[in-house]
Amino acid sequence: MNRIRTLFDIEFPIIQAGMVWCSGWKLAAAVSNAGGLGIIGAGSMYPDVLRIHIQKCKAATSKPFAVNVPLLYPNVSEIIQILVEEQVKIVFTSAGNPSTWTGHLKERGITVVHVVANTKFALKAEACGADAIVAEGFEAGGHNGREETTTLCLIPLVKEAVKIPVIAAGGIGSGKTMLAAVALGADGVQVGSAFAVAEESSAHINFKNRVVAAAEGDTRLRMKKLVPVRLLKNEFADQVAQAEAEGAGIEKLMQLLGRSRAKLGMFEGDMEQGELEIGQVSAMLTGIKPAADILSSIWNEFLSEKEKLSLLKF
């Protein structure tokens, strides 16, 4: 875990995921100020809005923070230019080919981490010069891997394949799950859902309450023909499930998804017609808390459970 601490110059090897409509500057600054690595999620921001969030985050924390950039969006080149102009030091790329921008960012002194769901892209990201990998298992919320490889299987596979640091993601929201990830070989962890419902998250309170109320089995992976995404059950998710059961193709799914469906649910608070992206770990979340408390709870439980295991006799 010292590799992750050193790479990002952070106190704890805990990274807050860059989540659409949740990860604004307030959440990123709060996590960074608490000793982790906060991330601004550029996926839900127009370029000029992203610039404002970067500037506000710089004003709110003197600690390192990062920006997550989903590479599937059409204005990526403009976003990358803003990151360079604003002198962002750490960039997490996801949902796209790492060879496209990794070299460009590295040439400008930026630390680059790429999110993957299989060993093929982990190796590709390493070959492109990525400084670390986020290996995200099937349990994760939001955009997900088509392979449906769970974190338990993915982390040791990726760890064996690459030499650069591996950050585990998917199903991690407690010290116990962090310890499990480290036992599998992870150098650090990325936490999404638990921070999505933090007080500082920019998500709507309706969404936060709905996530906290979620039970086991309340999420499903949908839209695998389009862009696989894990969703909470609601009227929209039911419509997607019905369309998929009837054999809907990409065009039909795109029509159903429409525009701003995630914004409608996660940011504007429509719990039935909105797209509610969240991970399986939502069933384990119990309340809306400050980001600093979430981070310290994960770290302290990690240390406690690690000590307990050291005392066990097998």
Score class of each variant (00 low, 15 high):
S202Q: 15
E86P: 10
K58L: 08
V166M: 01
A241Q: 11
K233F: 12
V197Y: 03
L50K: 00
T102L: 09
I288E: 04
T219M: 11
E78N: 13
K124S: 11
R51V: 01
L295M: 01
Y46S: 08
R51K: 11
S32D: 04
V112Q: 08
S282Q: 06
K208V: 09
K106L: 11
S304G: 11
R222P: 13
W101I: 13
A135E: 02
G247T: 09
I172T: 02
L7T: 01
W101E: 07
A66I: 07
N2Q: 14
N68Y: 02
G142C: 01
D131E: 09
E148Y: 12
K208L: 11
A161E: 04
S296D: 10
R220T: 14
V76P: 03
G36T: 03
T151P: 10
G145Q: 04
M178S: 05
A213V: 13
G36A: 07
I4P: 01
S310M: 15
A132Q: 01
L226Q: 11
I79T: 14
L264V: 06
G129D: 10
I54E: 00
I4A: 02
A262V: 15
C57Q: 00
S304A: 15
F236Q: 08
N118H: 11
G249V: 04
I205W: 12
S282V: 04
I155F: 06
F267A: 15
G145I: 04
W299L: 05
A186H: 00
L295E: 00
T119L: 09
L232P: 04
D48K: 10
L295H: 00
S44P: 07
A186N: 02
K224G: 13
T119P: 12
E244Q: 09
F236Y: 15
P74Q: 11
L264D: 10
S297N: 10
P228I: 08
K159H: 08
G145P: 09
E160I: 09
H53W: 07
A42I: 02
A215I: 13
R210W: 11
L295C: 03
A135P: 01
L157W: 14
A117G: 15
V113I: 12
T100F: 12
H104I: 13
I167P: 03
V112E: 09
Q239A: 15
E11V: 04
I82Q: 09
L311K: 14
L152Y: 13
F195R: 05
E235F: 08
K263Y: 13
E216A: 15
R230E: 06
K308V: 13
E272H: 12
A161T: 07
L123D: 12
V212N: 06
R259T: 14
H143I: 12
G249P: 06
I82D: 07
P70T: 05
K124T: 12
A125Q: 05
A291Y: 00
N118I: 04
L303D: 02
I39Y: 02
V229L: 13
T119F: 08
V76T: 15
V112P: 03
A30V: 05
P98N: 02
K106N: 11
S99K: 14
H104Y: 14
V212Y: 04
G247L: 12
M1P: 00
F8H: 01
V166H: 00
T219R: 02
